[in-house]
Nucleic acid binder design. Structure first.
Lengths: 256, 256
DNA sequence: CAGTTGAGTGAACGCCGTAAACTGCGAACG
DNA sequence: CGTTCGCAGTTTACGGCGTTCACTCAACTG
């Protein structure tokens, strides 16, 4: 790997080393590549995000991009990471606008913001949440995109935990959960999350998340157009039901 | 369009004309192309379904395929139509195995069969229900695939109508539905379905369908793997809730 | 039989991702 | 200072892609 001395987004191995001029230029180029890829994605769709097209727009040639990314797929994964960051930022921004104690408001705000971003960025959404690209599962190590995806997931999970702590909603006892599900929930709770909670809380979290993201996916991909021009009212209806499940008050969206 | 005298799947304009030998050979070739494309899709993934690969496997050259399909996209649309047919057939097959009066059983059977087929055919599922391919919306006329998709949708809709007629479930009155949603439902009912029903039935249908397909989409695309190895119990949990909504009895799946 | 039609081929065009060899320039070092 | 080295970037090339065009040849039609 002599030709690519440091993968993009890779943290410097020696933390104390100061940033040289070269490093800054390199980082700037990486950002320009990401930005160009993003623009092409938005304007011309996912299949137009080719190395040659990116290079062309930047006044370069395609092989030069191999100085920054090991392959086309790696570049796309980096873009995915950026998109997750952006989405996570928007969700956190929406959360901050809600008074700290208003848990129902927080839940509604973050849900609606997720839908808004998704509808406003359908091509980006497809990259993040569409059918996975083939060959992405060959490496066991988590890449930049996986890292940012984890942060994204935690944004929801954190909200849920706060919600449960501040204002517990009814959940089934561990013994009342289908054993096949129970063991999976236990594994997720103990070996992935590493927190102490009734399994029913995790179950409720997954149920809500599936309804939320499932509905948004169908809408963004156009699979509700057969019946609805605007799925917003169905989305709000779903929010009322999920809010009830979580013992949270529902409030319709503000007109703004 | 002198080079492509009849698009594949196009119905003969003169119905009474008898089928010539040429027609039969042509139809057989179309079927072989579809079958080859399908096999490549299953074995090597969607991006491997190229004209050249299909032709190669058939002992032909790529340009020959233009005798049968106007473009790569058109061939894929035809494949999508075939896949919808297959899926619809499986759903109807599952329905037939349930005693006529057992509406709850029918609902569960068709839901589970939909999930089963989807999980068993993830790549086909991605083609049918993934992010739409760009440029497919430029034509207003419905193609072969749209036609088959409509049949597929009606399989669910028919079941729902039968269910409502035989054993009405509680639905909100038209006046109690969010006006923004009400008008869309009315349009769908009157101008698309053309049937006489309370709007609440349509609303309930959409709500169920969104939960069903939304959940299956997430599972097939691997977006539940972060927490669950096997989403079957969550799917069953969803079925219990939807069954309750529809005033239908839930029964766990048979062991077989 | 001649004429037409349709299936299929081969070459070509402009894309694509990627590899290899090469050219400079800037920074680091003696 | 001059030398060296590493990195950014180019050029060229390979094989694969969808698609077009000119062509051949067999089969059907009158």
């Amino acid at each position: 790997m002599r030709r690519r001395p440091g993968a993009a987004g890779e943290s410097r191995e020696e933390g104390g080393e100061l940033e040289t001029r070269r490093d800054r230029l390199r980082a700037a180029t990486v950002r320009e590549i990401s930005g160009t890829a993003r623009r092409i994605l938005v304007e011309e769709g996912p299949e137009a995000v080719t190395l040659r097209a990116i290079a062309r727009e930047m006044g370069m040639t395609a092989p030069a991009l191999y100085r920054y990314f090991g392959s086309h797929r790696e570049l796309l994964r980096h873009l995915v990471g950026d998109l997750f960051s952006e989405l996570t930022g928007e969700l956190r921004g929406a959360l901050e606008k809600v008074p700290p104690g208003d848990m129902g408001g927080k839940f509604l705000a973050v849900s609606r913001q997720f839908r808004s971003w998704s509808l406003a960025h359908p091509r980006e959404y497809a990259l993040l949440f569409g059918a996975p690209v083939r060959g992405a599962e060959d490496t066991d190590e988590a890449d930049f995109a996986d890292e940012r995806a984890r942060e994204f997931a935690w944004t929801f999970m954190d909200l849920f935990l706060e919600l449960w702590k501040k204002k517990p909603f009814p959940v089934p006892a561990d013994e009342d959960i289908d054993p096949a599900l129970r063991e999976q929930l236990r594994h997720y709770r103990d070996d992935v999350l590493g927190i102490d909670l009734p399994l029913g809380v995790i179950r409720q979290f997954l149920k809500c998340w599936i309804r939320l993201q499932g509905g948004v996916s169908l809408e963004v991909f156009g699979h509700l157009k057969f019946a609805l021009d605007d799925a917003a009212p169905m989305f709000e209806l779903m929010l009322t039901e999920v809010s009830t499940d979580l013992a949270l008050p529902y409030r319709p969206p503000s007109a703004g």
